[in-house]
Amino acid sequence: MKAYLFPGQGSQFIGMGKNLYKNSHFAKKLFQLADDVLEFKMTSIMFEGPINTLKKTKYTQLAIYIYSVIKAKILNDFTPDMVAGHSLGEFSALAAIDVFSFENGLILVNQRASIMQNICELIHGGMAVIFGLKDDIIEEICKNDNGIIVPSNYNAPEQLVISGEIKALKRVCISLKKIGAKKIFFLPVHGAFHSPIMEPAKKKLKEFINQISFKDSICPIYQNFSAKSFTKSEYIKKNLIEQLTHPVKWKQSIENMINNGAISFTEIGPGNILQGLMKKILINFSKKYKCYHV
Results as ranks from 00 to 15, higher is better:
62 L>Y: 11
62 L>I: 12
62 L>C: 14
63 A>K: 03
65 Y>G: 05
66 I>W: 06
67 Y>G: 00
67 Y>T: 12
69 V>W: 06
72 A>E: 00
77 D>T: 09
77 D>A: 05
82 M>T: 13
85 G>Y: 08
86 H>S: 06
87 S>G: 13
87 S>H: 06
88 L>E: 05
88 L>P: 04
88 L>T: 12
90 E>H: 06
90 E>V: 07
91 F>H: 11
94 L>P: 04
94 L>K: 05
95 A>Y: 03
96 A>E: 04
98 D>L: 09
99 V>T: 11
102 F>Q: 12
103 E>N: 12
104 N>M: 09
105 G>V: 14
107 I>K: 15
111 Q>P: 00
111 Q>K: 15
112 R>F: 11
112 R>I: 14
113 A>F: 07
113 A>W: 04
113 A>K: 06
116 M>D: 02
117 Q>R: 02
118 N>Q: 14
118 N>G: 07
118 N>Y: 05
122 L>T: 10
122 L>M: 10
123 I>N: 13
123 I>H: 11
123 I>E: 14
124 H>N: 12
124 H>K: 15
124 H>Q: 13
124 H>F: 01
127 M>E: 05
128 A>M: 01
129 V>H: 00
131 F>Q: 10
132 G>A: 11
133 L>P: 08
134 K>A: 14
134 K>N: 15
134 K>G: 02
135 D>R: 12
138 I>N: 08
138 I>C: 10
139 E>D: 14
139 E>Q: 14
144 N>Q: 15
144 N>F: 03
145 D>P: 07
148 I>T: 15
150 V>K: 13
150 V>T: 15
151 P>F: 07
154 Y>V: 01
158 E>M: 12
160 L>E: 00
166 I>A: 00
167 K>M: 09
170 K>F: 11
